[in-house]
Write a protein that binds this DNA or RNA. Structure first.
Lengths: 108, 108
DNA sequence: TGTATATATTAACATATGCTCATATAATAA
DNA sequence: TTATTATATGAGCATATGTTAATATATACA
């Protein structure tokens, strides 16, 4: 009798642990109103930490903490200019999800 | 001097309180691995509460709680057959977001 | 009526999350 | 070097979240 081969199932929509983690992590980034507001602002253009705080009426540390979160997930990046850090989009797919969902929510 | 008119700004991507709430709520539904697994299962076909629990190795009450959550957001619906409730998809847009994200995550 | 089965609900608990204040760090300029 | 400005970090706190066991409810059937 021949050896059975273990076949790796990999449908387009199968859901291994790693994918499950990444998908839910990504959505978690978009599940908090403060982060959504920050990301929404960055749809326009890059902003410094203080500019984001002023624009959205948030504390500097709140913004900084959330930017760290978003940076860890590689959803945003920054460039430095002196002491100022300008944050901007770094994940086309996620920003598209956000745009898509905002537009959809408004046409409900 | 003429009266100033208050102009409602309503770009496709402006973000009023209501939209902000709905968008982040929707993503919150997709931010928990257990809920993602349940929704992912429902991509196939309808399942009863117990079937979901068996399939995903979860407690009946865990599944029931999460289904209530998803039902409140109108992401799933059910039909009754005797004492059995069959849950199924009830939001094409959100299920599309999920499919899209799973596929994207796998090609990272 | 009583029993069995499927699901929902409640309360308790542990953990996660988000915000804040205070302070640290980093870069620049005087 | 010291002072200034921008940002990051750590700790504490209140609240939110997810799971669980136990129990309640609802339907069907004998």
């Amino acid at each position: 009798m021949k050896d059975e081969k273990i076949v790796e199932v990999d449908n387009a929509l199968s859901l291994d642990e790693e994918t499950l983690f990444e998908v839910s992590q990504t959505f978690k980034a978009l599940s908090d109103p403060t982060r959504v507001r920050i990301l929404h602002l960055l749809l326009q253009k890059e902003f410094s930490v203080n500019e984001i705080a002023e624009n959205l009426q948030l504390r500097q540390s709140t913004v900084s903490h959330q930017l760290r979160f978003l940076k860890n997930l590689r959803l945003v990046k920054y460039r430095r200019e002196g002491t100022t850090l300008y944050y901007s989009q770094d994940d086309e797919h996620v920003f598209n999800l956000l745009k898509q969902s905002i537009e959809h929510a408004k046409h409900q």
